[in-house]
Design a protein around this nucleic acid. Sequence first.
DNA 1: GAGATATTGTGAATAGGGTCACGACTTTAC
DNA 2: GTAAAGTCGTGACCCTATTCACAATATCTC
Lengths: 222, 222
Amino acid sequence: MSGEQNKIPQATAKRLPLYYRFLNNLHHQGKQRVSSKELSEAVKVDSATIRRDFSYFGALGKKGYGYNVEYLLGFFRKTLDQDEVTKVALIGVGNLGTAFLHYNFMKNNNTKIELAFDADPKKVGTDIGGVPIYHIDQLEEKLGSASVAILTVPSSEAQGIAERLVESGIVGVLNFTPARITVPERIRVHHIDLAIELQALVYFIKHYPLEGEHEDHNGFKE
Amino acid sequence: MSGEQNKIPQATAKRLPLYYRFLNNLHHQGKQRVSSKELSEAVKVDSATIRRDFSYFGALGKKGYGYNVEYLLGFFRKTLDQDEVTKVALIGVGNLGTAFLHYNFMKNNNTKIELAFDADPKKVGTDIGGVPIYHIDQLEEKLGSASVAILTVPSSEAQGIAERLVESGIVGVLNFTPARITVPERIRVHHIDLAIELQALVYFIKHYPLEGEHEDHNGFKE
DNA sequence: GAGATATTGTGAATAGGGTCACGACTTTAC
DNA sequence: GTAAAGTCGTGACCCTATTCACAATATCTC
Ligand SMILES: NC(=O)c1ccc[n+]([C@@H]2O[C@H](COP(=O)([O-])OP(=O)(O)OC[C@H]3O[C@@H](n4cnc5c(N)ncnc54)[C@H](O)[C@@H]3O)[C@@H](O)[C@H]2O)c1
Ligand SMILES: NC(=O)c1ccc[n+]([C@@H]2O[C@H](COP(=O)([O-])OP(=O)(O)OC[C@H]3O[C@@H](n4cnc5c(N)ncnc54)[C@H](O)[C@@H]3O)[C@@H](O)[C@H]2O)c1
């Protein structure tokens, strides 16, 4: 069922939502055609990479012309959305979790946070941005057909909750806690570790200073 | 200054804060030695990769023994510049920005959000988690020696603010907006695009379902 | 319609990381 | 002291992704 358009590299798959978003922008601006070069400037991805990415889906463009925005958009809509909304559950309505709920995650895409869980009785029973908050004790009972979970609980709770989620049929986890959770191999876990992202950025700045390609050395002191 | 221990792969550099964090845990647990295999299980990184990562810094371990936790920790502290705090400014104290300020970013590391900016007069003048919030009009005036910025403004504002930040001497940006900003080459920008992370996770689940491989992949000889 | 120009799609080369597998060395057991 | 067990550091290999560079093909100009 899902295995037909098979060989798309993962790196490409991660860029698809980005392309999709920018194509939407272009479409709203009334643009009818776009070249890989233009798109490259907008999304900051090399134009050859864009052409290669698109080519995995066949010949979507026309030589000497570029790509038809509307056609491309329709194509991505089918490819990304699969006209099927994935239900997402959010666990841990604290600082981060609340922000995500308010963001009411996606306007034009295939995911929706349908429900949330917390251990705090003050939060249970309320809703944020239309998403109801249940008590974590009701996890198994309420989870329903949600297949993806966003994990924003304290890190000490992460492993235990992850196990319950897996038991309840979740197949993907977006883990914002610093804990590295252990789950069966069939479960996909993506870590987003904000503290590490910041530390890594600082490390790169200090250890791999980017040269401004112009020779103008303005005061890099030792 | 920074160019001596040069050839560390970026992938390695991104894992260093992770190692550091787990080594700290081990140290607090009173553990004195650790093998790459043990560490591997904790951080979910292949043990050969860990050894390779460490080896870029020289021979930090002892054959037949493993690594001395305290020594390794001291080494990473120096390498990651834990002693020297990088000042960070946060721009846009909305849902996400507020969460970050409350998190009071890092306990055991080298970065600190020192100040924040927003355009909303109701927020200006207050502080969150001890971080003062200034008006965005005072950006140039107050920014001081902050060298990194966290960007959590509406995406329409991102490019304009980024330009002002660059003008004011910022060298790194952690961009949480969906906008792809254009900056001089010497500026390092890391994008964290939460919507895309979620979409990509969903895409992977649908198109690359992980088989629950019962066969464990411990291809150890014998 | 012809020549100039634009742009794709892709083979080939390059870059970048991850993993295997084993020699070298250390520690542990007895 | 000797043998067994444990673990590192790394050469060799493999895989994935990126980039170059160009033939093929389309559009545009007049
Ligand atoms: N806020 C940030 O900026 C930030 C940055 C990086 C990482 N993180 C990580 O994200 C996670 C959440 O951070 P936060 O700032 O939102 O923390 P928080 O303390 O504000 O929120 C945690 C929420 O989880 C709830 N909770 C606690 N135990 C629970 C359980 N067993 N089941 C269900 N809910 C439970 C709490 O009631 C609370 O609402 C933490 O692991 C943190 O380390 C946060
Ligand atoms: N909240 C989320 O979960 C989430 C998820 C993914 C991406 N994002 C992105 O992160 C960014 C922030 O999201 P948010 O939910 O915190 O939005 P928000 O609207 O809650 O916050 C934006 C803040 O920026 C301030 N602001 C507006 N214009 C400004 C300016 N010119 N200078 C300084 N401050 C200004 C506003 O006053 C507000 O406080 C957005 O670009 C959003 O797309 C947010």
